Amino acid sequence: MIAREGDRFWLIQQAAEYVRSAAGFGSERQEDGAPRYALTYRNWQKFSHLRDGDLVTTHKDLRLWRCVAEGCRPGLWYPQEVGALTAEEKSPAGKLRNVGAAVW
């Protein structure tokens, strides 16, 4: 059942990708250069740390559950619902880390 919900979640995210820009809710409207995945994970700062850490070692069928358990708040979010960058993330090193995140 958890695997089925994970598959359903990603199908919804793929559908959202097709219509976000056309509807005017694409990643270009995000505040302070939040990474692209911020539209999927509202608490993208936690997701960023989890993604950089050991999410890859979690079985793919359990990754969505893990993101929920870690407080990443996966879902469909408007750009204005996504938090802005912190001072550390606005630093040169933080900007480089966010650029790398945008292509993940």
Rank of each mutant, 00 (worst) to 15 (best):
I2Q: 07
F9M: 04
F9Y: 13
W10G: 03
I12R: 04
Q13Y: 02
A15D: 13
A15N: 13
A15R: 15
E17I: 14
E17A: 14
E17K: 14
Y18G: 15
V19L: 04
S21Y: 09
A22W: 05
A23N: 07
G24R: 06
G24M: 04
F25S: 13
G26D: 08
S27I: 10
S27A: 12
R29H: 08
A34C: 14
R36V: 14
A38N: 10
R42Y: 01
Q45C: 09
Q45P: 09
K46L: 07
K46T: 07
S48R: 00
L50M: 06
L50H: 01
L50E: 02
R51I: 02
L55W: 00
V56M: 06
V56G: 09
V56S: 09
T57S: 08
T57E: 12
H59G: 08
D61I: 11
D61K: 07
D61G: 13
L64D: 05
L64R: 07
L64I: 11
C72T: 08
C72A: 01
C72P: 11
R73T: 10
R73G: 02
P74W: 07
G75H: 06
G75K: 06
L76A: 09
L76D: 06
L76R: 04
W77P: 15
Y78T: 13
Q80C: 15
S91G: 05
S91I: 03
P92W: 01
P92N: 05
P92T: 00
A93M: 12
V99E: 11
A101P: 08
A102H: 10
A102W: 03
A102V: 14
V103A: 11
W104S: 08
